[in-house]
Amino acid sequence: MNVLLAITAGVLFGGGLFMMLRRSLVRVLIGLLMISNAVNLIIFTAGRLVPARPPLISAGESALQPPYADPVPQALILTAIVISFGVTAFAIVLMQQTYRSLGNADMNEMRSTDTPVEDEEEAAS
């Protein structure tokens, strides 16, 4: 099953990347969201999935009884999910503001900060 999930994660990642390579700001955003989901899935899959119980110590026990799912990747992913939520929330709003300020949602039109400055006085005359 690992294999199937690994492929899924790969497809999600590749698909997200493809979307990020589009020109439309909205598509780029969608790609970003897909990639952050893909990464979590990657870590999850890499954390060795076996049929197991959730990492909860049941009443009466004093320790986890095997087989249990590795809680560490879960904790890591949880942290990662929350972080990426914060980051994507910011990114989404940033894109919105960029669009508003530029009046354009075409990534190819966003080049002003890279193209060399014109000579202002010469340009003026």
């Binding site: 990020m20 780029v28 970003l32 952050s36 980051v87 910011f90 990114a91 940033l94 894109m95 503001q97 960029t98 300020s101 530029l102 966003m110 002003s112 900060t113």
Partner: peptide, 16 residues
Amino acid sequence: YRAQLEGATKYVLLNL
């Protein structure tokens, strides 16, 4: 400012 937003967009995406 416009340039900031535009620059930040690339900055954010590539750093992510």
